[in-house]
Design a protein around this nucleic acid. Structure first.
Lengths: 212, 212
DNA sequence: ACTTCGTCGGACACTCTGTCCGACAATCAG
DNA sequence: CTGATTGTCGGACAGAGTGTCCGACGAAGT
């Protein structure tokens, strides 16, 4: 890793070295099941092989470390869901959620840490909420468009339905990947897709319901 | 150490005294928007008008205090949802959720504290999970019975659908009552009821879907 | 008057946090 | 080669908070 012909990049190299080292170490500790709250700076520094004071040269505090870790998390989930269009139907939605579950599973430890910390740290809460807001925006627009096209009942409140899907779905998915060994992934994706599809996107219209 | 020849009025004395005083004070502080994690024993004791050392005569730690507070929370939510039967239909389900929202709103501060603490404290997490398990049991049974009767598709996994409804619904409801001023309660109840009803209980059967 | 009880208030040991600073080796400039 | 710069170390430090312990003290009950 150290370069022979060192230029100004020397500082950048080293800086990136220690920082990456710390980030990787924490990611590993979280993956091993450590609770982020119980994980002290002392422990992080020791496991990273640096002095505790050095930790503070790179991160103002543990929260900043978590935010940087979370920011590095692949943002593929959004791309996956944004790619789905109602015209593709419920089978495509199932496939979409199967992919989302895979990314949740890949980042389960980090997601758990974020959820744990966002419960009492406003900075982390705002960060995660902002991340979810991208999903909400997209979902609201899709619902509104379907309502325009007459395929989704007009009496559905897009904002409320969106919160149910995104916030409720986020909780469901996180719980699922932290308690299920993977054998239930397909069922979870199917259930999630079918419930949103028949419960919201293709919910029977009010007049259709009356006829039943 | 515990006293030996103490009268039975001991509990009654405490109930009218220091213990209730502390519990009430913390409930008030939480209602005023204090975060439970940031709430120190020092502050709790001072606001309760007792010495800090006296706090430890009644509670082993802050977690025990929260668990006792949570245990005192009215358990009406379960009674409300358990009373609903599929035969009553989606309108009755909407009314049920409206009542549930009212109880969530009445206990919003405490629920937030529980959720916040359960993120990193296993004892609190287990407590709340156990509380939700009663709802899950009931829901699983209702789904299974509806499947037996042929009114709910047999290919739905009752356990997965239940987790989506209870865990996802819990998150949705808590978020709702902590961000909405109450004007959206009716819409939230309607959306929740309709989505579970048409997305799960009355989801079109597979052969019916094919015909579409 | 004497005991018992609950509470008080403070001391204590401990842990963790974030800051600071002198030491020190590696590296770079002239 | 010399001197300055850089990044890290290791430890000291103040502050906050936790849970334990104990002597003091007033308000009872007998």
């Amino acid at each position: 890793m150290p370069s022979i012909t060192r230029r100004r990049s020397d500082a950048a190299d080293r800086r990136g070295g220690v920082e990456t080292q710390i980030l990787d170490t924490v990611a590993r500790l979280l993956a091993e099941g450590a609770g982020f709250t119980e994980l002290g700076v002392q422990r992080i520094a020791a496991e990273s092989g640096v002095a505790r004071s050095t930790f503070y040269l790179y991160f103002a505090d543990k929260t900043q470390l978590l935010l940087r870790l979370a920011a590095s998390m692949s943002q593929t989930s959004f791309g996956i869901t944004a790619a789905w269009r109602p015209e593709a139907g419920v089978e495509a939605l199932t496939a979409t959620f199967a992919e989302v579950i895979a990314t949740y599973r890949a980042n389960a430890a980090l997601l758990t840490a974020v959820q744990e910390t966002s419960a009492y740290d406003p900075a982390v809460r705002d960060f995660w909420n902002g991340r979810l807001e991208a999903f909400r925006d997209n979902t609201r627009q899709v619902i509104a468009a379907e309502q325009q096209a007459g395929r989704t009942p007009a009496d559905i409140d897009p904002a409320v339905a969106t919160h149910l899907m995104i916030d409720g779905g986020d909780r469901f998915l996180l719980r699922h990947v932290t308690t299920d060994d993977g054998s239930g992934d397909a069922a979870a994706a199917r259930e999630l897709a079918a419930t949103w599809w028949y419960g919201i996107f293709r919910r029977p219209a009010t007049d259709e319901r009356r006829r039943r």
